[in-house]
Amino acid sequence: MDLSLAIFVQIIAAVLLIIALMVGNAVVMVYMERKVAGFIQRRPGPYEVGPWGTLQAVCDSMKLLAKQLYRPGNVDLILYYLAPITAFFPVLLLFLAIPFGPWLTPLPVNDGIVLILAFAGLGVLSNLLAGWASNNKYSLLGAARAVSQTVAYEIPMILALLAVVLQSGSMDLKRITDQQGQWPWEWNIVLQPLAFFIYLVSLVGETNRAPFDLPEAESELTAGFHTEYSGMGFALFFLSEYANMLLVSFVAAVFFLGGYKGPFADGFWWLFLKAYAVMFFMVWIRWTFPRVRFDQLLNINWKWLLPLGLINLWLTAIIVKIAL
């Protein structure tokens, strides 16, 4: 790919839009999370700020911006401040490869999923840095959990995605989308239900969400790796967590749910609708289930998801070979 000026400008514009998307997504998700939690628990949720509490997330982010950055004693200064930044920046790159619409891909690359998976691995580094640098035992335990969990859950995730890649014969997210049809029965979820299930479970594990929120399990580790972060330090972790959620939901939508394709009119609205449906599912299970234990979490991964993913990949390979 030759890096001409036009592409450069395109990337800059895309990154700016993506930052706006990340912040907007965090605002929407905080509101959705709290409202859904409220209604599940039979209370109204945010109510006071703005109509139906819609400005609550804005208020919260203002509070986080204005808060003092409190730093506990004996922290590893450079790593302590580096960790939230490392959490935030890789996520920016991840969105570049997502095809938002038929003509709306920030950076059209022909192996986008490799880009996404490569940079998604960086997120765990920030958790590790934060836990190590905080000089807090809870953070350290949380970081240790985060690393082994994220590393483990990447594998079934990749296996599930590989099955779709084998089936469509391309790593380009746009081509994978184009091979699916407009209507739900033409989406990959029909052909790859097992892969979708594996992806759905490992997506919860990968983003450290309940019931797999072991790195920040508050009844055990108070807040895990971000125990000692306040103000914007915490906000960046928060932002990147929601951005990560959005990203894996986008990938789920592209790979299994037809991406930007949908009935009547293709466009980015379908992609967003599908991604937010996946996120709603994540919020729903968070407020329903207890947390699994750590060894169980890894057992689910290594003993069930990984063999299932391999079987699925193998079956897909055979069927693709026969069909071709």
Partner: peptide, 27 residues
Amino acid sequence: NIKGLYSLLVGMSITGRYLLSPVETIH
């Protein structure tokens, strides 16, 4: 595990039902 997954669905249906039912609290 299949039975376990079914029990998870039961739990989700319960919270889903409450999600749609009116709130209990007094504002």
